[in-house]
Amino acid sequence: MSWLSKSLSSSIGKKIIMAITGLSLILFLTVHFINNMFLFFGKEGFDMLVSSLDAVKPIVRVAESMLVILFGFHIYNGIKLWWENRQANPEKYAVNAAKENSTFFSRTMPYTGGIILVFLILHLASLWVKFNFGMEGTHHYYDVVAATFQSLPVAIFYVFVMLVLGFHLNHGFQSAFQTFGWHHKKYTPLVEFIGTAYAVVFAIGFSAIPIYFFIRSMGGN
């Protein structure tokens, strides 16, 4: 084994992979978030935005391949960490005092991650496939989104997962900084604040979309 793969498969190495891919995915989410916010500024704006991305398809495909690699490493390592850590701690205490020494968000990372993975697969299989291969030459992307969230179960599922995503990010953001070794009395509270702010903004912003379209569809519009 080369020094690189040896180092990256050590317990700290796996953390470093989680942190680098995690922060990169947050960057992707930021772009995704900004694009999604165009939904609130009407049909024309959003359709034009997605059409303009359609026009530079090769670049989008390169970005998507990078995302596949990032997600791949993040998910593979996450599952590996979860499994190995379960093996390292097979016997549980009769009295569980975990809630008194750690946060809910930090303890549930593998589970919130798992829920997000299920969502990711469904989200790609529905909206991404539709946007990329199911438009039949038209550019009515906005209508596709609006139609998707007419269904109450779909809307509820999206809102639930966005809340879970917020939980995941709330721990993940500051955790990445700790992994890189950036921990200091003076700026760690700021990092924690930014992470929580990110989590809250993403959770509220993303879940506003299904809520908005579902309520609109109720109004018969």
Partner: peptide
């Protein structure tokens, strides 16, 4: 020390701070 840690069967740190 990190190699010895991993070889002794301890798990990885996931920053729960417990």
């Amino acid at each position: 020390m990190v190699i010895a840690h991993d070889e002794s069967g301890f798990g990885s740190c996931t920053n729960t701070y417990a």
